Simulated assay, not measured.
Amino acid sequence: MTIQPAKLSDPVVRAFVTAVNSHDRAGFMELLAPGATMADDGSDRDLPEWTDREIFSSRGHMDVDSESDGGRTLLARFRNDTWGEMRTRWSFTVEDDGRISRFETGQA
């Protein structure tokens, strides 16, 4: 059963999923702390290049199946025009100022 983005527990993660699904690059970037980092399948990636390729240029979309860790860890079906759909895990580090300093994703 899919969790609607508006029902996600953590407001920052909720905004992240909403920005991804609405292809709102500016809104997405505003959620990231200066110097934010990310990893895909355990390897650190160049965040601007990765998000452009995997989310924005390829029309990425997240359907969240479950959340844990107070809403900071998600299991989701992620799809884009490059890879199709895959089951993925996302985890987020959110700073006190409400911005994401790191997120990690990978196949679940």
Rank of each mutant, 00 (worst) to 15 (best):
I3V: 13
Q4K: 15
P5M: 08
P11I: 05
V13D: 13
R14G: 01
R14T: 10
R14I: 09
A15S: 11
A15D: 13
F16P: 01
F16H: 10
A19V: 01
A19E: 08
S22P: 03
H23N: 11
D24H: 09
D24P: 05
R25T: 11
A26I: 10
A26E: 13
F28T: 01
F28R: 03
E30C: 01
L31T: 06
A33H: 11
A33L: 00
A33G: 01
T37H: 06
T37Y: 03
T37N: 06
A39L: 02
D41A: 10
G42R: 08
G42V: 12
S43P: 00
S43T: 13
D44T: 14
L47C: 02
P48C: 05
P48L: 02
E49Q: 08
D52Y: 01
D52V: 02
E54C: 07
E54L: 04
F56V: 05
F56H: 07
S57E: 10
H61C: 09
M62A: 11
D63T: 08
S68M: 01
R72C: 14
R72I: 04
T73I: 11
T73S: 15
L74A: 07
L75T: 13
R77C: 02
R79A: 15
D81K: 12
T82S: 14
T82M: 13
W83F: 04
T88L: 05
W90C: 07
T93W: 08
D96Y: 01
D97F: 01
D97N: 11
G98F: 06
I100Y: 03
R102S: 06
E104G: 08
Q107H: 10
A108M: 07
A108R: 08
